[in-house]
Every structure is written in structure tokens, then in C-alpha cells.
């Protein structure tokens, strides 16, 4: 009797153990000929990194003779950051906002001075927030002011769950602030009015795009510049892009995860991977995927694609992400107050 008991328990445990041990093999990367990197990124960068990874792999093999395979993981920026904190072994993270990398740095997995390790605040490319409207712009939307008009329906995701949506929110807020000479109360009124024109708050940026394009809801989608171009390209030419007079400079940051790269022995290749993002080849690929490159010559080359508009930064108007997150998006923050019943 007792024997059978033991057998059953060990059967269960064994199965579990078998699953675990299968996973430990092959995680060592110290061999010379092949190396594997895991890049944990946010949703809209899928196409960018698909192209970039191929380019980097051939560059690296040519340079060092080492074959590199790059695994990708995409998801909401915050959820991805949490996964890395909880043990997803990313060698490199490329997320939507510095706040999400700061959160990883707090656990000690990334050195706290990460943002100074690479040029331009560790953002090799930038983007901004623009409007996507239906072909021919039937509602005549030209600037942020048109979004608060009666009868205009605006699609933007939920800032509580989507990093992209936070950029949208701050872009609108920044515009109102600039227009009203820094009057916070007026800005709040403006943004409140805007969100009252929003019929659906999707949980992610891609969900919002799908709601706008496929479900046919809303007159205008507030979106990343790169997302707007991609949607236009992928979903047929039924949309126009409208540039507002003022918008925010979105700086999606990249860095390597010190602890994991060290454990995997991938520090060298991880750093080279990030540096390659700043190289002319990397910058070109970014531009081809509608991200604004930092490289002056390349942005000149793609000038028709990236019109000059007045851009403000998050540090300039909001004092950085940590502060902005706390003021606007934390529980009980300004975004929550917008939806408080009166």
C-alpha cells in the first residue's frame, strides 16, 4: 500500500522534474560558434526587429565568424517589463518607455545608470504621436482642437494598460498646456473633453488600431507615427495621416540586461546588437519601418516621410517618466479623475 502511494507521488514529481530539466539544457551560450540573444520588446516593433535581426546576424557573422540567432518576444510594454522582472531571461530589452526599464533596474537586473550608457538617452530612434483619419478626412481634422469637437469620435487605447496610450495622453496634455500658457486646469479640461469623445478604450495600441480600421469605429485614431504608416500600408489605402501642429517626442529606449547577459555570456554581442541600431545600416532600417532615425543624413534622406513638426519632450514638460506616471496614470491620478462620475 505505502509503496503505491510513494509511486504515485513520485510519478507526479518526476513528470514535473522532466519538464524542468528539459529546459535547462542549451541555455549556456559560451560556445564560440553560435550564440543566442533574446530581445524582449513591445508590440509595434515586430516588423522593425524582424528586418533588423537579419541584418545584424549577417553583419556579426561577417565580423566575428559567430552565428547569432535572435529570439523575439513582443507584448504590451508594461507586461514585458514585468516578465523580465519575474524571470524572463532577456539579454536585451527594447521597450516603449523609460519607466518600464527603470522598473527592471530597480530589481538590480540592470545597472541604474542604464540610460546614460548609450547615445541620445539610449533611444536609437524616436517617434511621435499623429492622427490617422479616414480617406479624404471627412471630418476635417487638422489639429488637437478638432478632437474635442462635438460629434467627433476618437480612438485611443487605455493609458492604464498601454504604454503607447500614455504617450497619446501626454501629447494631448502637452498641446493644451502650451496653448494655454501652462495652465494645468485648462489642460485638464481639454483632455477630459477629449476622452469624453472616446467610445472604446482598448487594452493595447494594436487593439485600438484594429478597432479603428477593421471594426470601422471612430473618426480619428491617435497613434504612433510608425503605427499609422504601417496601418496605412498593411490595411490598404483607406486612411490618411494628419500631423498636428505640436506633438510629443517619443523616445523608446533600449538597453542590455546586465545580470542575464552576464549569466548567458552574451554581453559582447548584446552591446554590439544595440550599437548596430545606431549604425547607418540600423538607422536606415529604422527609417524604413517608419521610426525617425537619429542620424542626420538618414533623416534628411527620408525627409518627405518625416515632416518637421514642433516636438516637446517628456522631460521638458513633465519632469520625466517617473513623475508623469505618478501624477497622471497611477490609481487615483489625473486619468482616473477624468472618469470619476460627477
Amino acid at each position: 500500500m505505502r509503496k503505491i502511494w510513494m509511486m504515485m507521488v513520485s510519478f507526479t514529481l518526476l513528470l514535473g522534474a522532466a519538464g524542468c530539466s528539459a529546459q535547462t539544457a542549451g541555455s549556456k551560450n559560451s560556445t564560440k560558434h553560435t550564440v543566442e540573444l533574446l530581445n524582449v520588446s513591445y508590440d509595434p516593433t515586430r516588423e522593425l526587429y524582424e528586418q533588423f535581426n537579419k541584418s545584424f546576424a549577417s553583419y556579426w557573422e561577417e565580423k566575428t565568424g559567430q552565428k547569432v540567432t535572435i529570439k523575439q518576444s513582443h507584448g504590451g510594454s508594461g507586461a514585458q517589463s514585468r516578465a523580465v522582472i519575474d524571470g524572463l531571461e532577456a539579454d536585451v530589452v527594447t521597450l516603449a518607455l523609460a519607466y518600464d526599464i527603470d522598473a527592471i533596474a530597480k530589481t538590480g537586473k540592470i545597472s541604474s545608470d542604464w540610460q546614460k550608457r548609450l547615445a541620445n538617452n539610449s533611444s536609437p530612434y524616436t517617434s511621435t504621436i499623429v492622427f490617422l483619419v479616414r480617406k479624404g478626412n471627412p471630418k476635417g481634422i487638422k489639429d488637437w482642437d478638432d478632437l474635442v469637437k462635438k460629434g467627433v469620435s476618437v480612438i485611443t487605447p487605455n493609458p492604464k494598460t498601454s504604454g503607447g496610450a500614455r504617450w497619446n495622453f501626454l501629447a494631448a496634455w502637452g498641446y493644451a498646456l502650451k496653448k494655454n500658457n501652462g495652465d494645468e486646469q485648462k489642460a485638464k479640461e481639454f483632455v477630459t473633453k477629449l476622452y469624453h469623445n472616446v467610445p472604446v478604450l482598448d487594452s493595447g495600441a494594436r487593439g485600438a488600431t484594429t478597432t479603428f480600421t477593421e471594426k470601422g469605429i471612430g473618426d480619428v485614431l491617435i497613434a504612433w507615427e510608425n503605427e499609422a504608416y504601417l496601418a496605412k500600408k498593411q490595411l490598404g489605402n483607406q486612411f490618411d495621416i494628419v500631423y498636428p501642429s505640436v506633438s510629443i517626442l517619443a523616445e523608446p529606449p533600449v538597453t542590455f540586461v546586465d545580470q542575464i547577459a552576464k549569466k548567458h555570456g552574451t554581453e559582447k554581442v548584446a552591446k554590439a546588437y544595440l550599437d548596430y541600431l545606431y549604425s547607418p545600416e540600423g538607422q536606415e532600417i529604422a527609417a524604413q519601418n517608419y521610426y525617425r532615425p537619429r542620424d542626420k543624413q538618414i533623416i534628411e534622406k527620408y525627409h518627405s516621410q518625416f515632416p518637421d513638426i514642433h516636438l516637446f519632450t517628456i522631460d521638458e514638460l513633465f519632469g520625466g517618466w517617473t513623475k508623469a506616471q505618478k501624477t497622471y496614470f497611477a490609481d487615483g491620478g489625473i486619468f482616473d479623475q477624468i472618469y470619476k462620475p460627477k
Binding site: P199, V200, L201, D202, D331, Y339
Partner: peptide, 17 residues
């Protein structure tokens, strides 16, 4: 549609946290 106070279900709030 995830509208606060209107169509936000409990599991979504957990994700928000």
C-alpha cells in the same frame, strides 16, 4: 470596450494593477 466605471470587468482591473 474597457471604459472605466462603465465596461471595466474585474480581471481587467487586476491587469491594470
Amino acid at each position: 470596450g474597457n471604459m472605466p466605471m462603465k465596461t471595466e470587468i474585474i480581471p481587467l482591473l487586476i491587469i491594470t494593477k
